[in-house]
Every structure is written in structure tokens, then in C-alpha cells.
Design a protein around this nucleic acid. Structure first.
Lengths: 235, 235
DNA sequence: AAATCGGATTGGTTGCGATTGATCTTATGG
DNA sequence: CCATAAGATCAATCGCAACCAATCCGATTT
């Protein structure tokens, strides 16, 4: 029979088998038959190949031949196995930015926007903010809440009466949608958003309505920190 | 046969299928036949597209490609939320924004960025900030100073180690170049920028180098207020 | 003409079984 | 005693199908 280490035989099998980047290899239980080796030996070889970045494996999906290193990282993040191929300009940003960085950016910008809103909001703008808040609080599904929450924050950006700040907010928001939220969230298991957001939204809205910039800043910061806590630590 | 992830194939189908904003896509059960993919895979792609705001779906209605026009209609019909508008062309923004609003926006954002920079700057980043500061201080002509000052502020945005914040800064900076500066303007041969900026730049840089976020915030705010005062005479 | 009802359509959700990599247990041999 | 082989088991994923809920459309009724 053929000779060489398990790793070598595997490598020959892959390179000589016409497998290209992204292709899926036969499952382990089939490979041990084709290569005539034991499963432990096979897996030892696979582990070696995985360490050097030649392949990529995942439970329930299979074993895939990997491409460049960066590609591999991207795959691991998204759980998807494909090249980027996103046309839009901001999309690239979305792939570069980690959820944590996104959150830091929001914590950096949005409280300042809330303060500016409190300083400059017209009474109509305040009404719109309050309306958006009520819609967010009235949301039934998680998806709906997410969307309404977006609109609430945007209403605040509008209330600054400053198109530049609104544009900044929109840019950030658009990138946020593309950010790969990795493992966090999306389990859709209704965190029952315990209405801690409810109170926070009201606090922010009231601070703006009372034209209290410092309070608006602080309440928005609290709200975002609470969101951040829900996303990251806490389990 | 076609390749790529479900999301990519879907995107190609929409963009290459002559679907315009607001158009309705075929129902899922038909799409899986046309695209030859599983419903699970299809829905996975649809979810991704929805999250980045490319489409919009609703039970009993169907799946629609998103856009500004359909947004309003959808909003009126269902009262539900939809992806907010795509960032407006920067040129138009430049015409809408008054110099005063631009300045307020800078005062709103840049101190926060400076604070974030102080908290996150690597030693290399600090070096680059210091270098940019020295170049700005060494500028001889007003034009040169303006350009170097831009780079100084951008170096700070870079020092945040957050691509999102850098993108926000760039966007704002881009608009700033287009803003009509009306009367208050540059030709005024800026009398040797009295070196008040010199001290301010140094103060900001030092605060960042000392990793003192609060000081960085305050110094940057002072600097911008000083710039503002010079522009508008009086605040 | 307006209101109401029922079926058809459509996105959303759930449960089951199969596949597959990961891990544990047991047996074998040196 | 240790390493390996062999098998069982676990956990993640996927495909499939049925079912649910919102919507739409047309017929029927009033």
C-alpha cells in the first residue's frame, strides 16, 4: 500500500484529487475507507493540515480546502465559505469592523449627538423623537423593535438640526447593519428585551425634551452601555 | 454551474434580473426552484440581504428590493420600519451645510474622537500624531498649514484604532472641503496664524501621548472653539 | 355598494431525521 | 503503562416537510 505519514497521504489526496479552494472534502468516515487508514490517524493528519491553514473544518458542515490566510479568518467569522465579492463601498468597512469597535464608535458619537439634539431640537423634532420612542416601546417582535430602535436613534440625529451630524449617523448606521455580528445575538431567542431599554429610551427622550444637554449625553451613554452589556459580557 | 454563497447568488439574481427599487421578488418557494437551492439556504441569504438593507420582506406580501421610494409607501401601509436612506451624496451636503453647522458638528465629534484616541492609541500612532503636529507647526504658507492641520486631525482619528471613527472623520472632512465658506474665508492671508494654534496642537498631542482621555477631549474642544472664534469673530 | 367570509398566497417557525466533525469509552497490543 | 484502533456518543448543521400567521383576492351576502 501507499506509504508516508497520514498528513502526507492526505496532502497528496487533496492536491491530486482536483480539489480547489472552497471545495468540500469527503467526510471523515468516507475518507478512512478511501485512504485505508484509521480514523484517529486521519484526524491527526487533518489536525496538522488545519493548523497550517490548508483546510478548514466545522461540525455538521464538513472539511473544506482553505485559501489565503485572511480568507480563512473571514470564513471562520461568518461560518460561510466564499470569497467576499461585495460591490458596495461601505461593505468592506463592515467586514473590517468588529462588533466591539462598532459599539465603541457608537459610544463615542451618539451621546455627543444626543447632547447636540438637546441643545438644538425644535419642538416638532422633539415630538418626532417622542413618537419614535413610543413606536419602539410598542414593538412586539424583536425584529420590529430593532428597526424602531434604529428610527428612534435616527430621530435624535435629525433633532440636532444639523445635516452633517445626520449624515455621520447614517453612515455609521449603514455600516452597523453589515457588521458581522458573529456569534453574539441572532439566536433570536427573544431576550424579552426586559424593558430596561424602555426606561432608557424614556430618559433620553425626556432629557432632550427638557433641553438638558448634559443629561441627554449621559442618558444616551447609559443606554448604549446597557446595549453593549447585553451584547458582550453577560451570559 | 454557478458558484458562490447563497447570498451572492441571490444578489446576482436581483441585480441581474432587472429588479428595480420597490419591485417584488418571486416568492421563496419559487425562488428555490429557479435558483436551485434549499429554502433554508435561500432564507439565510435573504436574511443577510435584509440585514444590510437591500431587501424588505413581510408575511403575506412578499419580498421587495428596498429603496427610498418604497420606504415611504411601506411605512404608510404597515407602520413598520425599513432601512433608512442611503447616505446622501456628499456634494449636496456641502451646499446644505452652513459653516456654523459644520463647526458645530466638528465640535460635537472631534473632541470625542480625541478622547477615544487617547484611550486607544498605540505608541506608533502617537508618534504619527506628534509628527503631524510638528509638520503643521512648521508650515509656512496658510495653504500649507491648512493641509497639514487636516493631516494632524486625521492622524488623531487614525489613532483611535477604529476604522469606523476614521470613516466618520473622513466623511466629515470631505464635506468640510465643499462647504461654502462665504465671506468668512481664507483669502484673508491669515496673519501668520498667531501661534495660538501652535500651543493648542501641542496640548492635544500631549494629552493623547499621556493617554489622558478627559484632557484630550477638553484640549481638542478648546482648539476647535478657538478655530471657531477666529472664523466667526464672536461665538 | 358595502361588509363579510373563505380560500389561496407568502413569509416565518418548528420538529424530525440525516450528515458530519468532535469527544468519550472500551478494547487490543507492545 | 501507554498508544492506538474501534466503536459509541455528542453536538452542530442541513434539508425537508408540515404548520402558523399575516395578507390578498374574489365570491357571497346584506
Amino acid at each position: 500500500m501507499e506509504e508516508g505519514s497520514a498528513q502526507d497521504r492526505l496532502r497528496r489526496f487533496i492536491e491530486g484529487g482536483g480539489y480547489g479552494v472552497g471545495d468540500r472534502l469527503p467526510p471523515e468516515r468516507q475518507l478512512i475507507a478511501e485512504l485505508g487508514m484509521t480514523r484517529t490517524a486521519l484526524r491527526k493528519g487533518l489536525e496538522a493540515l488545519e493548523r497550517e491553514g490548508a483546510i478548514w473544518r466545522h461540525v455538521g458542515k464538513g472539511t473544506f480546502v482553505a485559501g489565503v490566510a485572511s480568507e480563512v479568518a473571514a470564513m471562520e467569522d461568518t461560518g460561510e465559505a466564499q470569497p467576499p465579492a461585495i460591490p458596495a463601498p461601505l461593505m468592506d468597512l463592515g467586514r473590517q469592523i468588529t462588533p466591539l469597535r462598532m459599539m465603541r464608535a457608537r459610544l463615542c458619537i451618539e451621546p455627543a449627538i444626543a447632547r447636540e439634539a438637546a441643545a438644538n431640537a425644535s419642538t416638532e423634532a422633539i415630538t418626532r423623537v417622542r413618537l419614535a420612542m413610543e413606536r419602539a416601546n410598542a414593538a412586539t417582535s424583536w425584529r420590529d423593535y430593532e428597526a424602531q430602535d434604529d428610527l428612534f436613534h435616527r430621530a435624535i440625529a435629525e433633532a440636532t438640526d444639523n445635516p452633517m451630524l445626520l449624515a455621520v449617523f447614517d453612515q455609521m448606521n449603514q455600516v452597523r447593519r453589515v457588521v458581522i455580528w458573529g456569534n453574539l445575538e441572532r439566536e433570536s431567542a427573544r431576550p424579552a428585551h426586559d424593558h430596561s431599554s424602555f426606561g432608557e429610551h424614556t430618559a433620553v427622550t425626556n432629557a432632550i425634551a427638557e433641553r438638558n444637554p448634559a443629561a441627554a449625553y449621559e442618558e444616551m451613554r447609559m443606554h448604549l452601555r446597557s446595549v453593549s452589556r447585553r451584547l458582550f459580557d453577560e451570559e
